[in-house]
């Protein structure tokens, strides 16, 4: 599978504040790539860097195999995006907005294509209404239509379900899946809701305080056979030392907030518990984290 996005050691500083820290990830052709993180984790900053709205402090971005800085125009011509809430020109109609954004994207779009796009997002009946008369959900859908009007290969959606009612969220989800499964588009979708990602993304990255925490295939990350186990002991360094000399060492993950983490089959947990006791480790707590949600929450609480 070819790579559509390759981000290497991306860093962005705003003065003394490091918003994105040494972030690397890749998005493959046709993937729905979930970009997960708490509010303020650095998702929007990263997305803005992908769209050249923000200049990175360090690192490299390649999209469609081209350097973003050198081939900005070619890349953006094939990219559509909604960034945060889809603010459009309120004093213009839906049709006028789409006409403007298609021209800005360098595409020659017919009136029929504009109407088709509006029909795709369920706004054909309100094509001549001014955007200021639209509900939040309608604006969101129009924003998506504006992102898609020039038929881009890569679609970047930043929190696309924000402010939507349950029906709107479901519609957006179905649209994303349609774009991916039926039209073969590559999507990078950011959200702070893991549940959303679980339903639409096939690959996923979780970032926290600008850093990558975990990246992988969603099914594997959410594998019911496997579980992240959180271990709290009286002597963390001693425990870590002991474990590193055992077969459990391969399952060790980065410690988080004074707790050890190991990824293992759920069936192995009793045996692990027994091993700890036999080695005289004073276990204060041993807790399997059932879903990625737990894992995500434990990170974000930290």
């Amino acid at each position: 599978m070819s790579e559509v996005i390759r981000v290497k050691q991306l860093t962005k500083d705003f003065g003394d504040f490091r918003a994105v820290n040494d972030l690397s990830f890749t998005v493959g052709q046709g993937q729905v790539y979930g970009f997960l993180g708490q509010n303020g984790a650095g998702k929007s900053t990263t997305i803005r860097m992908l769209l050249t709205l923000i200049e990175p402090t360090a690192g490299e971005i390649e999209i469609f195999g081209m350097n973003l800085r050198k081939h900005r125009r070619e890349i953006l011509r094939q990219t559509g995006a909604i960034i945060e809430k889809p603010d459009l020109y309120k004093y213009l109609t839906a049709k006028e907005n789409l006409r403007i954004f298609s021209r800005l994207s360098g595409a020659k779009v017919t009136e029929q294509q504009i109407m088709d796009q509006l029909a795709l997002v369920g706004l054909a009946g309100r094509s001549d209404s001014k955007v200021k008369t639209y509900s939040q959900g309608m604006k969101q859908r129009l924003g998506l239509a504006a992102a898609l009007i020039h038929n881009p290969g890569l679609i970047i959606l930043d929190e696309p379900t924000n402010g939507l009612d349950p029906q709107g969220i479901a519609d957006m989800r179905n649209l994303i899946l349609h774009l991916s499964h039926d039209l073969g588009k590559t999507l990078l979708v950011s959200s702070h809701l893991l549940s959303e990602m679980e339903m639409i993304a096939d690959h996923m990255i979780i970032i926290h305080k600008g850093r990558k925490v975990v990246e992988g295939i969603v099914d594997e990350l959410l594998n019911p056979e496997k579980s992240m186990v959180e271990l709290v002991t009286a002597d963390l360094p001693g425990t870590l030392n002991l474990l590193q000399q055992t077969t459990w060492a391969a399952m060790l993950k980065e410690p988080v907030n004074g707790t050890l983490r190991l990824e293992m089959n759920k069936a192995a947990i009793p045996e692990f518990n027994r091993d700890l006791v036999e080695q005289g480790i004073a276990v204060q707590s041993l807790r399997p984290m059932n879903t990625l949600e737990d894992y995500f929450l434990s990170l974000t609480k930290a």
């Binding site: 803005r48 769209l51 050249t52 709205l53 900005r72 125009r73 070619e74 890349i75 953006l76 011509r77 990219t79 995006a81 960034i83 945060e84 809430k85 603010d87 459009l88 020109y89 309120k90 954004f101 800005l104 994207s105 360098g106 504006a146």
Partner: peptide, 12 residues
């Protein structure tokens, strides 16, 4: 208005 990020992210 929030449209600056939209137009600045276009191939111009």
């Amino acid at each position: 208005l929030g449209t600056l990020r939209l137009i600045a992210g276009k191939p111009v």
